[in-house]
């Protein structure tokens, strides 16, 4: 099975090569790389810009604690559609902060990507996005930000890597007290993965492998917290996996840690495509 990562150049810039090197180092089959998802869709003429922008605007979640998701029958404001339209082909410039309904986005993208030649059996798309993604959690009846949404297509939120996993509890307590966020981020710099962090491409690589594992085995996650397929909910888990930022700045490693079972599994994928 082939797999394709869409949007790495746009969203990781020069760091996209690290993503490739990291995946390569695991012995997994290498993905192909394609442009940002809406560029592909528009190029294939699967939809026009205005339709895409209008649909995306409908998938905004206005309040994470809401008990219900976006109401697709409610027409978005023209300014919301215009906003989506402006950044449809320039994701690198899109301001983040609005969460989108991850499961509905997947449903929305699925037929468009199928028309563009992707399929669950022959060419799995892993879509990198500049947006926050959230999915509804029935246990506490509210939305939660996610780093990725598994399935076809697999979605990975780049700002979600910074914002979805929990930072230390003290961070949120101090933030609530009204401390300057920039100062707070500086004070906790060593304790979370921020935008521009050198570990980001490796985290993306780990999430992409989760997506591939899910499609091939029906199970994306590993119980071993030392494996990149572990479903991390905290930044300290990611940091334990990928090491300190400084080490990566020095270019010491492109390694994606995998437990022995999953290390064997991804290598086997090359043998049994």
């Amino acid at each position: 099975m082939d797999w394709v990562v869409l949007g790495a150049e746009e969203l990781l810039g020069g760091e996209a090569r690290k993503l490739k090197a990291s995946i390569e180092e695991t012995g997994s089959p290498l993905p192909a790389f394609a442009p940002y998802v809406y560029r592909v869709i528009l190029e294939e003429k699967n939809a026009d810009k205005e339709t895409l922008a209008g649909m995306l605007a409908k998938l905004r979640i206005k309040e994470l604690t809401a008990k219900v998701g976006p109401n697709e029958s409610v027409e978005p404001f023209p300014a919301e559609v215009a906003f989506e339209g402006r950044f449809l082909t320039s994701p690198e410039k899109k301001p983040y902060g609005i969460p989108y309904e991850g499961a509905l986005l997947q449903v929305f993208l699925r037929p468009l990507l199928k028309q563009a030649g992707f399929s669950r059996l022959s060419s799995l798309p892993v879509v990198l996005l500049p947006d926050l993604l959230a999915t509804f959690e029935p246990s506490d009846r509210r939305y939660h930000l996610r780093m990725n949404v598994l399935g076809f297509p697999a979605l990975i939120s780049i700002p979600g890597i910074v914002l979805a996993p929990a930072k230390p509890r003290e961070y949120y307590l101090l933030k609530r007290s009204g401390l300057d966020p920039a100062g707070l981020n500086r004070a906790f710099k060593a304790l979370f993965i921020d935008h521009g962090d050198s570990r980001l491409p490796r985290v993306v690589a780990g999430l992409a492998l989760q997506a591939l594992a899910y499609l091939r085995t029906g199970n994306a996650f590993c119980d071993d917290a030392r494996c990149s397929l572990h479903n991390a909910h905290w930044h300290h888990e990611l940091i334990a996996l990928y090491g300190p930022d400084e080490a990566q700045n020095a270019g010491l490693s492109q390694d994606i840690p995998l437990c022995s079972a999953h290390s064997r599994m991804v290598k086997d994928w090359k043998v049994t495509p």
Binding site: K62, E63, L64, P78, A79, E80, A82, F83, R86, P95, Y96, G97, I98, P181, A182
Partner: peptide
Amino acid sequence: PGHGSMWVEASEDLVVEHTGE
């Protein structure tokens, strides 16, 4: 819908981008 939580880093860009009619 009403405003979300306070979030300076994200909000300022979004406010300017959504300003209009």
